[in-house]
Design a protein around this nucleic acid. Structure first.
Lengths: 203, 203
DNA sequence: GAGCTAACTGAACGATCGATTAGCATCAGA
DNA sequence: TCTGATGCTAATCGATCGTTCAGTTAGCTC
């Protein structure tokens, strides 16, 4: 047990995961080689296979860690807020923070699509779903205008959110302006509570 | 000249483009090999290099053809309609038709991202922009609520639109229901004109 | 029917990929 | 001091990749 602790402290598994996440996020899965990951982590390719059996398993491990991290970040950002529309807004902002700034792990999830790796697609989809269910609950708590489908709204929202890394540059302006635009598109018409201060006064 | 005509009629370049588009759309760029394309078109790998110098050039050719086709489809769908909000709606529907049903070429554009092929990224982005300018004009003609950014709205819209192939299944219901959801998110608050007939009466 | 060219075949090239293997160093526990 | 994991290195494997190329075929021209 002490040995296990020492092992977890000393070995290079976390560094390997970090290196893999950074490369998968930047270049995608196919364009990243085992040698790239090993070199970035400062080990030989063989060492990598001591920790993980295949390249696909490495991707799955990164994916799982990424989902864990983004869930933690979103949950922490929502905090104890109880107003559904404010919870929704905070979740959107936290999601954008995670994939635009914070974490290469989160960026892997939106960059590497399940279909890119057919053999691991089912597992990757399951990991994604684990996260998207957070938004399912958030949207279900909203008081949507009649006629809007919570499911379709979630699909459109996730699509728009996950495309942001393609066009977003830190110089694009304050993140809050982008969050406002998301709320204007996907949170408009909610009756749950008064929205954030700066909207509602608008038309 | 007669020879040129006969050549254009008989050679396999269109068939090669079709095969490449189908495979790129289904598996992505990296997972599709030259041999896959050649086999699907019924030729040997060497024959492919008679028509195109590199795999990247093949992708660019498919991309360009895809942009041509989706622009033609969207323009044809808008037709002579002059109401800005109806033009907007028709363009959304035409875009979805193109990437969900009609054309493997259009699906390649939303499936293979410029960043997936760094050496061809600039060219691919130029092709994409050629199409997205259509939506820039459509949105500029809308009468948006104050405070909404036409540029951000376009980014969010394109992201949500281009993510549909990931989750859409023909059994997901009528396409019009999805178009309604897009208009509710991105076309709401327009003052340009009364909306299309079949909504408004629906609840 | 000789000559030419577009279009293609069949086979192979070098490079690189994911993965494997034999062996070495380190160190805790007995 | 020995033992046996643990964690790694160095070298390499077979497979597959994009690409090349010498030669073949079909159809045209003169």
């Amino acid at each position: 047990m002490a040995a296990t602790f020492a092992k977890l402290q000393s070995n290079r598994w976390p560094a390997l995961l970090d290196a893999a996440a950074a490369l998968f996020a930047e270049r995608g899965y196919h364009a990243t080689t085992i040698r790239d990951v090993a070199q970035a982590a400062g080990v030989t390719p063989g060492a990598l296979y001591f920790h993980v059996p295949t390249k696909q398993a490495l991707l799955i491990a990164v994916y799982a860690e990424g989902v864990d991290r983004i869930i933690r970040h979103v949950d922490a950002s929502i905090g104890a807020e109880i107003d559904p529309s404010l919870r929704f807004r905070r979740a959107i902002k936290a999601h954008l923070e995670a994939i635009l700034d914070t974490s290469a792990f989160a960026r892997v999830i939106v960059r590497v699509l399940p279909d890119d790796v057919p053999e691991a697609a089912a597992e990757l989809r399951a990991q994604r779903d684990r996260y998207e269910m957070r938004f399912r609950a958030l949207i279900a708590a909203l008081d949507l205008p009649p006629g809007r489908s919570p499911t379709l709204l979630r699909m459109l929202l996730m699509g728009a959110l996950n495309a942001t890394p393609i066009w977003y540059r830190p110089s694009s302006g304050r993140l809050d302006a982008i969050v406002d635009e998301f709320v204007a598109s996907f949170g408009a018409g909610m009756t749950g509570a008064g929205p954030e201060p700066q909207r509602r006064s608008k038309r």
